[in-house]
């Protein structure tokens, strides 16, 4: 019973690590990395839901009757590529912030905002 849930615990652990990076670190690039880890934990969650004991990869073949669930695979496949596109957008904004403020640390940026 307990061992049957360990994959969810790995997901929760990764998700919380990503979450911790996002809220505890001031560095914007580090925050984006945290977001990536958070994202990956969701991917792992979906893929482990799709897994079927004794199932094969969802490509139809002779003599195979059990396949893993293809639907989560499709969702995650596109989510990964969309994820990299949005990450790139976040990094682009970070680069612009660095040019405008000379820093990518949240504290310094806020300090400068408060001065003006």
């Amino acid at each position: 019973m307990l061992i049957g849930h360990y994959n969810y615990w790995v997901v929760v652990a990764l998700m919380m690590l990503g979450f911790f990076i996002i809220i505890a670190h001031g560095n914007l690039i580090k925050k984006i990395i945290g977001l990536t880890i958070f994202q990956t934990s969701v991917f792992i969650f979906y893929i482990s839901i799709a897994k079927l004991d004794g199932g094969s990869a969802p490509i139809l073949a002779e003599g195979v009757s059990d396949y893993s669930n293809p639907l989560p695979h499709v969702l995650i496949l596109t989510a990964i590529v969309v994820g990299i596109a949005t990450t790139a957008l976040g990094l682009a904004i970070t680069v612009r912030i660095n040019e405008a403020y000379g820093s990518i640390e949240e504290e310094f940026i806020q300090k400068q905002d408060n001065q003006t």
Binding site: I47, S56, Y67, T94
Partner: peptide
């Protein structure tokens, strides 16, 4: 986990392109 299509994407995106983009962003 038998998700070969997803693994393919993750290997090229997660281990390849995203590392590269982060490096370029850090360089700047």
């Amino acid at each position: 986990m038998d998700a070969v299509d997803v693994a393919f994407t993750e290997a090229s995106v997660g281990a390849g392109i995203s590392t590269l983009l982060l490096l370029v962003a850090i360089a700047k």
